[in-house]
């Protein structure tokens, strides 16, 4: 019986393919994309201010509110600024670390260092932000204790804290693609550049950087997009500062259509970013 089913299936590759695709297709296309589509449509609806019910009258009012109210424009620019800063900081910290791991250290310690960089990815997101609460706490925090002797004070909770916290969270996501890119880069290229008289920094700028650019872009997609939609970090160490995610979160229970409208901003920015990345051709070489 069982073998006859096997034979029957074997002779029908279309059926086999259909069986493989049915469940994940239903799940991802119907359930997930369906939910996203429904949310997008909700963005064009309004809410009855008395009953709180959603009224399905297709209009652009929410988008108009979002684009004309300077408060939302500020939140959008601030979020964008934070995401760009985080990406930049992660890049600056990650580059020398990845370079050291891939090109300077011995094979033995390389494996160990990769594990050291990977471990915090498994430590809880919340715990890491909570850690920065203890670090940044004005007056009694670790930063004030550690750096007060050299005259540095904790920035306290607010924009800089959010940037530090998010950079901390996403740093491994930047180090790993750059490390992988550098590992693929043949040493002979660096030697050749050196033999031809280029100094270290010149080799780095003219040989290494252009060749690992796709890896940098790959890393930036994580740091940028993950920062763009975050709101938990802002809630824990951001003081009163709000990000786009915070606005979505707050509107979710009181005005879902407007929450959906705001949610289109990070999605649109990400889509634009991906499109830009595609244009540079960096994705193709990943």
């Amino acid at each position: 019986m069982k073998s006859s089913i096997a034979t029957w299936m074997h002779q029908r590759p279309k059926i086999r393919l259909l069986a493989l695709l049915a469940a994940p297709g239903l799940w991802l296309v119907v359930a997930y994309l369906g939910a996203l589509g429904a949310l997008l449509i909700t963005a064009f609806f309004t809410i009855d201010t008395f009953t709180g019910d959603i009224i399905a009258n297709f209009n652009l009012g929410n988008f108009q509110d979002m684009l004309t109210d300077p408060a939302y424009r500020n939140v959008m620019l601030r979020t964008l600024g934070i995401a760009i800063s985080v990406t930049f900081i992660c890049g600056v910290i990650a580059l020398p670390m990845a370079f050291f791991m891939a090109k300077v250290t011995t094979a033995r310690s390389r494996k160990f260092l990769v594990a050291l960089v990977l471990t915090p990815l498994w430590a809880s997101y919340l715990v890491k932000i909570y850690a920065w609460r203890s670090m940044l706490e004005p007056g009694t925090g670790v930063i004030d204790w550690l750096l007060r002797p050299i005259g540095i004070h904790s920035p306290g909770f607010g924009g800089p804290a959010i940037i530090i916290g998010l950079s901390y969270l996403w740093l491994p996501y930047m180090i790993l693609p750059i490390y992988a890119g550098l590992e693929r880069l043949p040493n002979s290229l660096l030697d050749a550049s050196g033999d031809l008289g280029a100094r270290n920094f010149y080799t780095f700028r003219r040989i290494v950087l252009p060749l690992i650019f796709p890896s940098l872009v790959a890393g930036s997609m994580f740091t940028f997009s993950l920062s763009l939609g975050d709101y938990i970090t802002a809630q824990i160490i951001g003081g009163k500062l709000q990000m786009l995610g915070s606005v979505v979160y707050q509107n979710f229970s009181i005005n879902l259509p407007f929450a959906a409208t705001i949610a289109t901003i990070p999605v649109t920015i990400m889509a634009l970013y991906l499109w830009l990345v595609r244009r540079t051709g960096a994705l193709a070489s990943l």
């Binding site: 359930a31 369906g34 939910a35 996203l36 429904a38 949310l39 909700t42 997609m221 997009s225 763009l228 939609g229 975050d230 709101y231 995610g245 979505v248 979160y249 979710f252 879902l256 929450a259 959906a260 949610a263 990070p266 999605v267 990400m270």
Partner: peptide, 15 residues
Amino acid sequence: ISLPGVVTGIALSNA
């Protein structure tokens, strides 16, 4: 996994 969690979250909750 690449869309912000808050977008996936409210989309699923709404659905």
